[in-house]
């Protein structure tokens, strides 16, 4: 990912900022220029909840370039109380303990590095819930 693109995506990747369409009320994540449901472009900021449920996952053993040394890793779909679903890496999880329906929560992690001299890209991932507070 280019440096400008990473920088532009910081609010959505690092603070999980989505858009809520003022016209139809749907939540758009990742943010888009127009609402993907009604086509309007009048939004307010919406922060994705910290906790959700894992509703599907894949264990990646044959990764794309740049992720070769991180296998096996898990990519999942998380559903939130309001019905919103997003995809994310699931971290700090023993792959033998993965379960559909398990509670997960946000955690700030490193996603990739552009080599030894490039930038480090951070984003929110999800992990099994640490503690119910």
């Amino acid at each position: 990912m280019s440096v400008p693109r990473y920088w532009r995506n910081i609010p959505q990747r690092v603070r999980m900022e989505a858009l809520k369409c003022k016209s139809c009320g749907k939540i758009i994540y990742p943010p888009r220029a127009k609402c993907i449901y009604c086509g309007k472009n009048d939004f307010e900021c919406y922060t994705i909840p910290e906790k959700g449920r894992l509703i599907s996952f894949s264990i990646i053993r044959h990764p794309p370039i740049g992720f070769e040394h991180t296998t096996p890793y898990v990519v999942g779909i998380i559903e939130f109380e309001n019905g919103l679903r997003i995809s994310s890496q699931i971290t700090d999880v023993d792959i033998n303990e993965l379960k559909i329906g398990m509670e997960v929560e946000q955690v700030f992690r490193k996603v990739s590095e552009d080599g030894k001299s490039g930038i480090i890209q951070y984003a929110i991932k999800f992990r099994p819930i640490f503690q119910n507070i």
Partner: peptide, 20 residues
């Protein structure tokens, strides 16, 4: 620290807990 952790990720998690 895990494979996807460094000082920035640890600092952010500690910071969020302090804000809570």
């Amino acid at each position: 620290a895990g494979i996807d952790e460094d000082v920035a990720t640890i600092a952010v998690e500690a910071a969020k807990n302090s804000l809570k």
